[in-house]
Amino acid sequence: MFLTRWGLDQVTDSATLALTELVANVVRHVPGRRCSVLFLREPHGLRVEVADGVACALHAKAPEATAERGRGLAVVEGVTDRWGVEERRDGKTVWFECDG
């Protein structure tokens, strides 16, 4: 992955897992399955943004023990240093940061 070329070997696994979870949410919940992904090399590490056209509040919550779904944002929270949601007029951007 290009993170190696950026000198971010130590965050590659976490960033890959978090990105996979966010894109999976788009596939499951966004009509048309459209999104944009932005990678930003920051002084402290990496910031990744996934933007889509559906406005809704997101939060990491613990699903029922027997639930088959609902752990994605908890995974993002667990493997990244920071994450959040920015509401926009035309949807939302879910972002995370991994310190390098």
Rank of each mutant, 00 (worst) to 15 (best):
R89N: 12
A62E: 05
A55V: 15
L58S: 04
D81S: 08
G91Y: 10
V48D: 11
R88Y: 11
R82Y: 09
T66W: 08
V85M: 10
A65D: 13
T66Q: 07
W83N: 04
K61G: 12
A62H: 03
G53C: 13
R82S: 09
A57E: 13
G53N: 15
C98G: 12
V85F: 04
K92W: 02
V79K: 01
E86P: 04
T66K: 07
A65K: 14
G84C: 09
E49L: 15
L58P: 06
E49R: 12
F96C: 04
A67W: 00
T93L: 13
K61V: 06
G70F: 08
V50C: 14
R89K: 13
A74H: 00
D52C: 14
V79L: 10
E49P: 12
L73M: 15
G53Q: 15
R69F: 05
E68V: 11
G53K: 14
V85S: 07
V85A: 09
V85I: 12
K61I: 04
G84S: 08
G72K: 03
R47D: 02
E68Y: 09
E77F: 00
C98Y: 05
D52A: 13
A74N: 03
E87F: 05
F96D: 02
C56M: 15
A55N: 06
V75W: 03
A62V: 04
R47A: 01
R69Q: 09
A55C: 11
G70C: 09
W95S: 04
V54Q: 03
C56Q: 15
A65G: 13
K92Q: 10
T80C: 01
D90S: 04
V48K: 09
V50Q: 12
G72Q: 04
V50H: 12
G72L: 10
A67I: 01
G70V: 06
W95E: 03
G70I: 06
G72E: 05
A74C: 03
A65T: 14
V76Q: 00
R82E: 10
V76R: 01
R88L: 15
H59C: 06
E97A: 11
D52F: 15
C56P: 13
G78Q: 00
W83K: 01
G70M: 08
R88H: 15
K92C: 08
G84Y: 07
R89V: 13
E97N: 07
T93C: 15
K92N: 01
D52Q: 12
D90K: 02
V94Y: 05
A60V: 00
A51C: 15
R69K: 11
T66M: 06
K61M: 12
R69T: 14
A57Y: 08
H59E: 07
K61H: 14
R71F: 01
A60M: 00
R71S: 00
G84D: 09
E68W: 07
G53L: 14
G84H: 08
R82F: 10
D81M: 06
P63M: 12
A60T: 02
R89S: 13
C98H: 06
E68S: 13
G91E: 07
T66R: 06
V94R: 03
C98N: 07
L73I: 07
A60P: 00
C98E: 06
D52R: 10
A74I: 00
T93H: 10
K61P: 09
A74G: 02
G72P: 11
A55H: 11
A74T: 00
K92H: 01
V76P: 02
G78S: 04
W95K: 00
H59Y: 05
A74F: 00
T66F: 10
F96Y: 06
G72Y: 03
R71M: 03
